[in-house]
Amino acid sequence: MSPVLSAVLKFFAALGIMLVNGVVMIYMLRKVLGHLHIRLGPMHVGWKGTMQTLMDVLKLLTKEDVTPRAVDRWLFRIAPAVVFVPSLMAYAALPFSNTWRIVDLDTGLLYTFAVLSLVPIGILMAGWASANKWSLLGGMRAAAQQIAYEVPLLLSVLPVVLVAGTMNLGGIVEAQQGYWLGFIPGWFALNPLMWPTLLVFMIAGLVEINQTPFDMSEGESEIVAGFATEYSAMKFGLLFLSEFSNQFIMSALGVTLFFGGWTLPWIPAEMNHAFGPVIFIAKAYIGIAVMMWIRGTFPRVRIDQLMELGWKRLIPVSLVLIMLTGLFVKVVG
């Protein structure tokens, strides 16, 4: 196959995953949150309400696209794309299996974080362009969160890189093969030394993708809908599509870094290779379900508490963790 054709096909595959993920996750969110609140969620359109999100997509596509008069026209139009494109790009390095990946990058981990770090800029752009105090507050919060939590997030994955000895996401999965004591899978999540790292990664990751309890940039109870207040129709759709997609990417990264990626323990390698993508996506959705569980359980934290946690606690903690892991690797390895 010609390289251009295969690149185009891979692009559409990533776009397809992103769109389907959006539809699936909205339904999942409604159902999971519904049951957490002891109610049923959507029930009427299709079997158990399964067609509800498809109808919502149709609704979003056919709604009137309102542009308020006071907005900064260019920035207002570009902002949804600036949020959407990095989110799509982040699929490139994810290892769905040992052969299924868009590109095999030696710097895959760094690439994913670099690309994701552009998302809050789009949110800030949307917040500023909307010419609305709530939007601007939402955008500023997104920017402040990102500046504060980018550092702990990056530092929190360094112990994994130190132990695995590579930044290639596929390589990190391969480093988690094998067993401890003969039967415990070699996943980093099952290594007690990695638990503090996993905790820092989870907190900083949730902040980085603006998920509850850290979704102050949206904060519907205080600032209407934050950066998305003035957006309607498919522009709004794009903003939220990328938010759901970021959730998938962060979950997939967590699966790759800590939970053995596309592999399952105790089954032959051929089985792993054959069902890799299925296992990977299933694991990623388990991670998303945990995020939704957190979302249904925890109250939103205050922005000043969040800043304090990031700067004064997580950064020093992750620096110490890197040093300890470095020593450990030097002594044991």
Binding site: W128, M140, A143, I147
Partner: peptide, 26 residues
Amino acid sequence: AEFLALVQVLVYAGAVSVLVLFVIML
């Protein structure tokens, strides 16, 4: 220069320019 490009995106585009925007807007 793959690493340099990624660090450029991460540090300059992802962090420094957010900081610049933040300061301007504040």
